[in-house]
Design a protein around this nucleic acid. Structure first.
Length: 456
RNA sequence: GUGCGAGUAGCUCAGUUGGUUAGAGCACUGGAUUGUGGUUCCAGGGGUCGUGGGUUCAAGUCCCAUUUCGCACCCCA
């Protein structure tokens, strides 16, 4: 047997049917981004590894796809390099596939700072790659749809991004839950419990609250090296419940000794207050257990899940105060979110939310009866196309059954038959595929009927 | 990186305590219907049973190794 072809692990082909639905999602997202005044950019699939490494935490570095240098990639290595994998990989790979769109964007901003008009609002819809083990809702190649504002500290940007989230999911028909938190609150909590150096440990543990529950989180905190004293102080924070009006004052009290913590609460309250006055469809909630793994977030953090389908987050983001600083442009704050198109697709498919009429593009197919007939059809086909009706002529004069089957499978609603008698009468026979009826009419009549929708 | 499960026709899968020529549905091709699809009926093609080794008179079935894929953990869109 010939070698069975396949695609690399975690990557997928998309059939025409899938592409029509995917494009529908991309179009809704893109249209919304444009409506809010964001401009498109694109960056290369690959970046220098120096651009990518160290931006996503230890786990992120591990999940980067590295590209082997072309030619003799061992040229620069020495025997002792082979003892240390990370040293070796630096010598044999200088490029990597992008892991997200935010870091390449930061690089783009730094490189093009003189040409950019700040605050810069950009959107970017491109695939990213992660060397993760694939599983449900997780792919090694997937699309992110990013919107970011860079060069503005205003919390109005946070509000705007949440409005975009609401807009997109409202139009797609996905019931969404927007969770909001702030890294400064988490930093404040770490300070108040007396473990300012253990922010990562604390956030990673409490991030699992929903999944593993209160008791397990406490256990995990202890495993991660938090003192019993600190854990006791943390407990009342983790169990905070009730309405926002009640939570905020309580939090203020708890974080009274932490300037940064109080600032985080202020920011979150401001955003929430704005949102409250707007007509928002999505449920938005303050979730103190929301942490998000990416290292570069410094302020607001946002994560969106689908209410009716468990698949992880379908959109996420936050504010980063100094991402461009790493590339030599300090004090430029940005905030952005990223829609996960592939997961949104999975949610919409599972909940059957795609519109029905995304099917075929061809409206009319001409049957091919032979060389003479096909030649006669060509000008008529062009006439239909010029009238804006997407039309095709079957390329081969094969059996009619075959041609009809083709039209049927592609959901082509009208089939035109022109044989010798039609050529003589200067008319055409059109078959309406959903009813099976057929009638003999002229070409102009057909165009008028289709464009006027008086035929069905 | 850790754990669990599965690889049989193009696809989805069945295959009994090991026992003739490995089956079904869908898809494909031809016919009923030479200018008529979607429904129906008839016929046909298509398999080194993931790969390598072992046990046995006999292996799709049991054992070992290997590989690929899926699921969960970690982390994430």
């Amino acid at each position: 047997m010939a070698q069975k072809p396949s695609v690399p692990k975690g990557t997928r082909d998309f059939s025409p049917g899938e592409m029509l639905r995917r494009n529908y999602i991309f179009e809704v997202i893109k249209k919304t981004f444009l409506k809010y005044g964001y401009l498109p950019i694109e960056t290369p699939a690959m970046e220098n590894l120096s651009t990518l490494l160290g931006k996503y935490g230890e786990e992120g570095d591990r999940l980067l796809f590295k590209i082997l240098n072309s030619g003799d990639f061992l040229k620069k290595t020495r025997a002792e390099d082979f003892k240390d994998i990370s040293k070796l990989s630096m010598k044999i790979a200088e490029k990597g596939l992008r892991y997200d769109l935010t870091v390449p964007f930061a690089r783009f901003v730094v490189q093009n700072q003189h040409a950019i008009n700040f605050p810069f609002k950009r959107y970017q819809i491109q695939p990213v790659w992660r060397a993760d083990k694939p599983q449900k809702g997780r792919y090694r190649e997937f699309y992110q749809c990013d919107v970011d504002v860079i060069g503005s500290d205003s919390l109005l940007n946070e509000v705007e991004l949440i409005l975009i989230i609401d807009d997109v999911f409202r139009e797609l028909g996905v019931q969404s839950i927007v969770k909001i938190n702030n890294r400064k609150i988490l930093t404040g909590i770490a300070e108040v419990v007396g473990e300012p150096g253990k922010i990562t440990e604390i956030t990673v543990a409490i991030d699992k609250m929903e999944k593993i529950g209160f008791d397990e989180v406490i256990k995990e905190l202890s495993i991660r090296g938090l003192s019993a004293n600190a854990i006791e102080k943390l407990k009342p924070i983790l169990t905070l419940e009730g309405k926002l009006k009640e939570i905020f004052p309580k939090l203020m009290e708890i974080l009274d000794d932490s300037e940064i913590g109080k600032q985080g609460i202020q920011e979150t309250m401001t955003v929430m207050r704005h949102l409250k006055d707007l007509n928002i469809n999505a449920k938005f909630i303050l979730d103190l257990t929301l942490a998000r793994g990416l290292d570069y977030y410094t302020g607001a953090i946002i994560e969106v899940t689908a209410k009716d389908h468990e698949i992880g987050s379908i959109c996420g983001g936050g504010r980063y105060d100094n991402l461009t600083g790493i590339f030599g442009l300090p004090d430029v704050s940005g905030v952005g979110i990223s829609f996960g198109a592939d997961r949104i697709y999975d949610v919409m498919l599972a909940l059957d939310l795609f519109p029905e009429d995304l099917q075929s593009s061809t409206q009319v197919m001409f049957v091919n009866f032979g060389e003479k007939e096909a030649k006669y059809c060509l000008s008529l086909v062009q006439k239909l196309r010029q009238a804006g009706i997407s039309t095709e002529l079957f390329p081969d004069a094969v059996k009619m059954k075959k041609q009809m089957t083709y039209a049927n499978k592609n959901n082509i609603p009208y089939v035109v038959l022109i044989g010798s008698s039609e050529m003589e009468s200067n008319k055409l026979t059109v078959k309406l595929m959903h009813t099976g009826d057929q009638k003999e009419i002229g070409i102009d009549e057909l165009i008028e009927a289709i464009n006027g929708k008086t035929i069905s």
